[in-house]
Design a protein around this nucleic acid. Structure first.
Lengths: 181, 181
DNA sequence: TGCAATAGTTTCGACTCGCTACTAGTTGTG
DNA sequence: CACAACTAGTAGCGAGTCGAAACTATTGCA
């Protein structure tokens, strides 16, 4: 009881301090998080709804964020022909550049040894999985660990969406990803 | 390079999801964090400045937060007689009740086994320590792990502030805490 | 005594947050 | 085929956070 409280507080404090140090340029932490997500998401998962679900916020808020990012030239919008309601946002060159930078926590984490990093990632992923299960949230994992994924040289194939994937795409985030039994 | 990125994202996503689930009542996540800090801080560490430094934000913002918390009756203010500039905020009964609740991540963390929890806390603390060192931040650890602490039955004594501490106080957060060599 | 440093507050503009209401496009069912 | 139910995205509201800068009041130092 005592220990969990501190772990939760540690996670929140680390995130707060990281956010505070992520204010540079004309971007705020949330906008930065949107760009980071976009850089790791596959072409089926770049809509406002998906970003909102991933970040645990609402479509309304993300809609505003995209309006601002669009104005500043970090993303470009692409409307779908199949479903005229849907919009997909892509990183522009300027947007992609931003996601390369890595200040804040990044440095502190890289000081850990490999064993610590692996254990940390495993445990945090475990916590996330449990949390998402309790809250009916989706995992947003990468394609090549998904139950619908079929390896196929050089890339892969998604049985759920009946789409073939390039090699690069197999390690991107998908909103439909599922690796549970 | 690849792995750190995910750990940082994991920490941030967990904190975001936790925050999203912490919106209940008439409190927002930041206000909740202020109350949580107040519940664990000692009597020398309950000023706006200390809270701001702990949470990685500014005095201005925290001043607003306290204004709101004061209005809603979660905290009470106490001016110091020695330094007429200083203010200390105390949890009211209503404020203390709130800090008892534990939704969100709490449950997911408690599902881990003891070994995982210990390792997780150790590693996260390590990251925090490195981060704070790089950013000239203070640790905000508890008295009984401080270089100025002197055990003294039943409580303790702080050599820095020349104040004696009750037993309960020895495990509270102090803004002056220092356990580095 | 005088002046720099400190504690806290206020204000500004941009933004996030939950919420509700809204438009427009899409599905399911009779 | 029509019409209701659902879904994607947007707009607007009020409260609050964010950094930053300007402003009191007080204290400490030289």
């Amino acid at each position: 009881m005592e220990k969990q409280l501190h772990i939760r507080e540690l996670i929140n404090r680390l995130a707060r301090l990281d956010a505070a140090s992520a204010w540079g340029g004309d971007l705020n932490p949330t906008q930065r998080a949107v760009l980071a997500y976009l850089g790791r998401a596959n072409r089926f998962s770049k809509s406002p709804s998906h970003v909102a679900e991933y970040l645990g916020t609402t479509r309304g808020t993300i809609s505003q964020s995209f309006k601002s990012l669009l104005q500043k030239g970090y993303v470009s919008e692409r409307r779908s022909a199949l479903d005229k309601r849907a919009i997909s946002f892509e990183l522009t060159v300027k947007g992609r550049e931003i996601t390369q930078f890595s200040g804040g926590l990044e440095q502190s984490i890289s000081d850990l040894n490999e064993h610590q990093k692996l254990a940390l990632q495993t445990t945090l992923t475990e916590i996330l999985k449990v949390f998402l299960k309790q809250n009916n949230g989706r995992t947003f994992g990468v394609c090549n660990t998904c139950i619908h994924f079929e390896a196929d040289n050089p890339g892969g194939f998604c049985r759920l969406l009946s789409e073939s994937l390039t090699q690069d795409e197999t390690s991107l985030i998908c909103h439909e990803q599922n690796n549970a039994l």
